[in-house]
């Protein structure tokens, strides 16, 4: 193994690591605010990537129908439990009118001729709203349940979403166009343009999230909810709103990660899970609480993965997921009080 290979593997590792970092941040965020361990994060990634692939090949993306279905379901749940006319009105607007309008718009657009930026926006517009809808339907009715129940629901939602993914995308995988074909020479190292896009996008997203949480009222409301749900509720922050907002952000991060990862590897309907789980390993390194540790862990996971795929490619996933054992051991040695759980 010479310096060039090390540099290449390192570049691969950091690129993947940046994507895992985004996922890890979303997982930490969702867990902190809603106590949901968000297994379906990977499905948002896969759906985003496959929607983009459909748009690129000029097809009408079938995820729109999923959006319409999700919307109708959410509206039904809202109608079943809502109290005021205004809430219903808003629900009709977001869960029925918006998906139908989007479907109509896409029907009229010449999909094959759209510029990349428009495709990105459309992919976001289709998949992201399903995040808050999912929260409303699956999690909001049991928001106060123990972490374990929320986790099992989360796994159940993941399974259902994988099945739906297979139904609408089929078993074939897709790879999308990189956002940049450029190549840069850095000494003896060739750096791909897409690598820079991934790193740049990750940094921009992380900074944007930081600003959102540090500077905006909604961001502060989410932080307050993460620290003390009841306290936040007494200050007038609706936990339901906080949950939906969190799932919205997680979906944005999921879809963007999907768009970033699809030019690097072929994405199948079920690829999201393994990619998401690697984000998990990173998030667990951060104890599901610390953002910087989670991001650092993600880079570590990315590097470990790229180097182990060089030495023992068949055992790449074994090595990455076994990493969790020493991490958990280290965590269990550093925490030594008897914990009281609900």
């Amino acid at each position: 193994m010479d310096a060039e290979i090390i540099a290449m593997l390192g570049q691969d590792g950091v690129t993947n690591g940046a994507i895992y970092a985004l996922l890890a941040l979303a997982l930490v965020l969702v867990f902190a605010v809603t106590r949901v361990i968000f297994i379906p994060q990977g499905e948002f990634l896969a759906w985003g990537a496959l929607t983009m692939a459909a748009l690129e090949s000029g097809h009408f993306p079938a995820t729109v129908w999923l959006l319409v279905g999700c919307g109708v379901l959410t509206l039904a749940v809202d109608a079943f439990s809502a109290t005021g006319r205004r809430t219903i009105g808003r629900s009709v607007l977001w869960n029925l009118a918006y998906p139908l309008a989007l479907a109509g718009l896409l029907w009229g657009l010449p999909i094959a001729e759209l510029p990349t930026a428009a495709r990105v926006l459309i992919a976001l517009a289709i998949v992201v709203p399903m995040g808050p809808m999912l929260y409303r339907v699956a999690f909001q009715p049991v928001a106060e349940a123990p972490v374990l129940v929320l986790l099992i629901i989360s796994v159940a939602v993941h399974l259902a979403m994988v099945g739906l993914g297979l139904l609408i995308f089929g078993p074939e995988g897709s790879r999308t166009q990189p956002f940049s074909e450029a190549q840069f020479e850095l000494g003896s190292l060739m750096v791909g343009g897409h690598t820079l896009v991934v790193l740049g996008a990750s940094v921009v997203l992380i900074v944007a999230l930081y600003l959102f949480f540090d500077r905006t009222l909604y961001g502060k409301a989410l932080r307050a909810t993460a620290i003390n749900r009841n306290g936040a509720r007494l200050m007038g922050i609706s936990p339901a709103l906080a949950g939906r907002l969190t799932f919205f952000l997680a979906a944005v991060i999921g879809v963007l990660s999907g768009l970033l990862v699809a030019p690097i590897t072929t994405v199948y309907y079920d690829s999201g899970f393994l990619i998401g789980l690697k984000g998990f390993v990173a998030a667990i390194i951060g104890g599901l609480a610390s953002y910087p540790l989670a991001a650092g862990g993600a880079i570590l996971v990315g590097l470990l993965e790229s180097f182990s795929s060089f030495w023992a490619s068949a055992f790449k996933d074994v090595i990455v997921f076994t990493l969790i054992i020493p991490v958990l051991m280290w965590r269990s040695l550093t925490s030594h009080h008897v914990e009281e759980e609900e």
């Binding site: 361990i37 123990p146 972490v147 374990l148 986790l151 393994l274 789980l277 998990f280 390993v281 667990i284 599901l288 068949a314 055992f315 996933d317 074994v318 997921f321 076994t322 969790i324 054992i325 958990l328 051991m329 965590r331 269990s332 925490s335 914990e339 759980e341």
Partner: peptide, 23 residues
């Protein structure tokens, strides 16, 4: 390794170990 940690680490750990053993 996992039982001393709070409740959700065990399921996550078993998930990871389930995948590793499968591969």
């Amino acid at each position: 390794v996992t039982l001393k940690l709070s409740g959700h680490f065990l399921p996550l750990g078993t998930m990871a170990w389930g995948i590793s053993l499968y591969f």
